[in-house]
Nucleic acid binder design. Structure first.
Length: 801
RNA sequence: GCCGCUGUGGUGGAAUGGCAGACACAAAGGAUUUAAAAUCCUUCGCUCGUUAGAGUGUACCGGUUCAAGUCCGGUCAGCGGUACCA
């Protein structure tokens, strides 16, 4: 018999699949469709790594199984190729990022094919392809036309090393997500997308989708909805200072107010009101707060600082009490109204501030000791010192005071979200140009759709500038244009889009990847969408997943797509860690190179081990010893050919049916590790029995095929079965045939196993108990039986006294 | 602080409330071999016992149950996310 020469076999079948376009998908209304999506990678120079292969293998297994189950499967792939690493590489090596990207894409594609992924390569997309980003720009223009894209002067997160504005989501602990350099605040004019307009729908419509609870929870958390009230405080400067609070019930306990250092009232008060006594002190504090980076604001011990604005005071609308106003950086301009009423008795931060500045702490909810700490419990507290709210529980007081505020026109119920608008500008070269022209007369004007794609021009230097302008800003030919509306000279926007743009809609392009007239035809979108199953990393839960849901909802609103949600089901994989249990990183020297692994164990060996290593949804530690076991299993599978003959072994029937059942259901629940162990158990039993029939052999090959497609296809061919293995139908099991004729049960006395007994499968409880008692023999002689419990085909428990 | 997740042999990990440790790795012993690799067989939670067996055991404390790794209450430890969000 031939030896198991995996490299030869794998090459043979990969070439065959490529030549025959085995996995090319076409629309087919006769078949039920199933759209499986993996997160397309950023094609980095390092190539495909184990962290890509694990989720891709999992979804490849699902795709192969679905095809055998008769579905029309869409399983596409592509590249999210805009982004900083390619640009940084270009800066260093003076090569155009498009060239670097093309090389990397070629490498990635070869590597994917070498693992045997059954992607439909005819649908490959690349976000840097002008035919693709034409539509990314088109979607941006639709957002602009609907008023959902706007430009705004704002304090942004500026990475001091990348010299680029970062989204809030890209700032990690006050440092840049990519380079870990310090991030500071800088005021710049930025394109923004109004994702906040969709906050409620992004929240509500989570109920319509099948996502893991942890994913839903972090989206809910990120959106951060809170309900409360907006309250108007009159000031002696004539303005009305609006505050947002989730605890309107504590309004009587407000003993001072705080506004953010960036609050616009400060400037107004300085200008038109000459009674502010400590202008210098306030300005100094403000300058200091502005200088603080995000890092300092979050990392420095949260000691409360601030300055009282002397000469200005506010009046509490419920009792007309005069209330001092402070400026402090513990209040953020970006949330609520940038001003708060401080209730030190019932808010921890206010309590600390009041202690530091020796301000009165007035208890209005009874239940704690407000001299020791803030009492924040909403469930047990009872209102006191609050006039018409006295004696009410907190929740009732909230309702009553909110009504009172509305009646007296000094406030209203208010919902707030932590989610902020999406900072959409990047001062970088390697991204989609934002298709907007700025005209002195007309303002911001959309580039006509007929001029899309607005291509990235060639530049000499990709280097971002210290002024914070994109490299495009130095190209006069690019910048200078005419206004599409009035024809006068105008300037192009030089910022580009963030990497999240292209990935916010790629799953739509896969449905119709070469369409020159639309992002995809309605007909094809209606056939393929929604995505039936989308697997990706937890790290994309609050960024990519939220952004793409936002864009999809917008496209739904303008009639491009027919479903509200893009993804019916989402699952998340755990990462592959190094052998030391740490994240794989060059600096730790624990990186496993998949090409080495495939050379030593084959693609099938690698696929199998990545699925066997542990719970798919949890992080797993790589083990070179572990993969040996999988290779051994494949060799034992190969050697089944030696014991293939016609002699029937009926005793194997139950285990075959059980295995079909287990493998089928385990793939659906992502329990690949136990599916493989079931196959291992099966093969062990087959060897014990000494032979396998052709029908059983074929069943085994079908079950193993999604996991190890090359070796099984080869064995199928060698066994001279008809056609190709990947064209066979998935195997079915018969529940009745899963059971052995006889089964061993445990016999317990008071829950402890005292004997074993063999019973015919499916025996009545009474029969089981009789057999069990017989098996116990004399052990029951001097005992009083209190209760007899039988669990069918499992055990008997006799309770005695 | 808040949200989420996880604590099971030497290791990775299995167990719809029903015999804890499936499957695999490592280790030890044996067979085969001139030898090694590969392969095959045996042992393998801990304690006592030569064996039979007995006791004990799923982070810790308590509860529910005939029966708890699993359910409930509390505690501890670790991991991930997030935060002066009013």
């Amino acid at each position: 018999m031939r030896e198991y020469n995996y490299s030869q076999i794998e090459k043979k079948w990969q070439d065959f699949w490529e030549a025959n376009q085995t996995f090319k998908t076409i629309e087919d209304s006769q078949k039920e469709k199933f759209y499986i999506l993996v997160e397309f990678p950023y094609p980095s120079g390092k190539g495909l790594h184990l962290g890509h292969q694990r989720p891709y293998t999992a979804m490849d297994i699902l795709a192969r199984k679905r095809r055998m189950q008769g579905y029309n499967v869409l399983f596409p792939f592509g590249y999210d190729a805009f982004g900083l690493p390619a640009e940084n590489y270009s800066i260093k090596n003076k090569i155009h990022p498009a060239i670097v990207t093309a090389e990397n894409v070629k490498k990635f594609t070869e590597q994917c094919k070498a693992v045997g992924f059954s992607f439909d390569w005819s649908r490959e997309v690349n976000t840097t392809d002008p035919d693709y980003y034409k539509w990314t720009q088109w979607i941006f223009l639709q957002l602009f036309k609907k008023g959902l894209a706007y430009k705004k002067e704002m304090a942004v997160n500026w990475c001091t090393d990348c010299k680029v504005v970062l989204a809030n989501e890209e700032v990690v602990d006050g440092t840049c997500e990519r380079c870990s350099s310090e991030v500071v605040r800088k005021v710049k004019s930025q394109w923004m997308l109004k994702i906040t307009e969709y906050a409620q729908r992004l929240l509500d419509e989570l109920e319509e989708v099948d996502y893991p609870e942890r994913v839903k929870a972090s989206q809910i958390n990120w959106i951060g909805r809170s309900t409360g009230a907006q309250v108007d405080f009159k000031t002696n400067a004539g303005d009305i200072l609006q505050v947002y609070t989730t605890r309107p019930d504590t309004l009587f306990g407000a003993t001072y107010m705080v506004i953010a250092p960036e609050h616009p009232f400060i400037d107004e008060w300085m200008e038109k009101w000459d009674k502010v006594m400590n202008i210098d002190e306030i300005m100094e504090y403000r300058a200091m707060a502005a200088k603080k980076s995000d890092f300092e604001r979050t990392e420095i011990i949260k000691e409360k600082t601030g300055v009282m604005i002397e000469g200005i005071y506010a009046v509490n609308p419920v009792n007309n009490r005069v209330t001092p106003i402070f400026i402090s950086d513990y209040v953020m301009m970006g949330y609520g109204t940038g001003a708060i009423m401080a209730v030190p008795a019932h808010d921890t931060r206010d309590w600390e501030f009041a202690k530091t500045f020796n301000l009165p702490i007035l208890e209005v909810v009874h239940g704690g000791d407000v001299e020791k700490e803030a009492f924040t419990d909403c469930e047990t507290g009872i209102m006191i010192n609050s006039d018409f709210l006295n004696a009410l529980p907190v929740e009732e007081a909230k309702v009553k005071i909110t009504e009172w505020l509305a009646e007296n026109k000094v406030g209203e119920p208010k919902i707030n979200y932590k989610l902020r608008d999406w900072v959409f500008s990047r001062q970088r070269y390697w991204g989609e140009p934002i298709p907007i022209v700025e005209c002195d007369k007309c303002g911001f004007v959309a580039v006509p759709e007929s001029e899309l794609p607005l291509k990235l021009p060639e530049v000499e230097s990709y280097m971002p500038t210290d002024t914070g302008e994109s490299p495009l800003a130095s190209l006069d030919d690019f910048i200078n244009t005419t206004c599409p509306d009035c024809g006068s000279p105008a300037k192009r926007e030089t910022d580009t889009m963030p990497q999240w743009a292209g990935s916010s809609w790629y799953f739509l392009r896969y449905c119709d990847p070469h369409n020159p007239d639309e992002l995809a035809s309605k007909e094809k979108l209606d056939y393929w969408m929604e995505v039936d199953w989308y697997n990706g990393g937890m790290e994309h839960t609050t960024l990519h997943l939220l952004y793409s849901r936002f864009w999809h909802k917008f496209l739904y609103d303008i009639g491009v797509v027919s479903a509200k949600e893009p993804y019916k089901k989402r699952t998340s994989h755990g990462n592959i860690l190094g052998e030391d249990g740490q994240k794989m990183a060059k600096s730790r020297g624990n990186v496993i190179n998949p090409e080495d692994v495939m050379r030593d164990f084959g693609a099938d060996g690698l696929r199998l081990y990545e699925m066997f290593v542990g719970d798919f949804e949890k992080a797993a530690q790589w083990s070179t010893n572990g993969i040996k076991g999988c290779k051994r299993f494949l060799e034992r599978s190969w050697n089944l050919q030696e014991i293939l003959n016609d002699s029937d072994n009926p005793e194997l029937r139950p285990i075959f049916h059980k295995t079909i059942k287990k493998v089928s259901s385990d793939i659906e629940t992502l329990k690949f590790n136990t599916a493989i162990s079931a196959l291992m158990t099966l093969i062990n039993e087959v060897y014990t029995s000494g032979s396998i029939t052709p029908a059983e052999f074929k069943t085994f090959l079908i079950l193993l095929n999604p996991f190890a497609p090359h070796i099984t296809e080869e064995m199928y061919e060698l066994a001279e079965f008809d056609g190709l293995l990947n064209e066979q139908l998935w195997v079915e099991y018969d529940e009745a045939l899963c059971k052995d004729d006889e089964i061993e049960i445990a016999v317990q006395i008071n829950g402890k196993v005292r004997a074993k007994a063999v019973i015919p499968t499916g025996s009545d409880n009474a029969v089981m108990i009789d057999i069990a008692k017989a098996a116990l023999g004399s052990a029951l002689d001097d005992k009083t039986i209190v209760k007899e419990i039988a669990v069918p085909d499992k055990l008997v428990n006799i309770v005695v006294r």
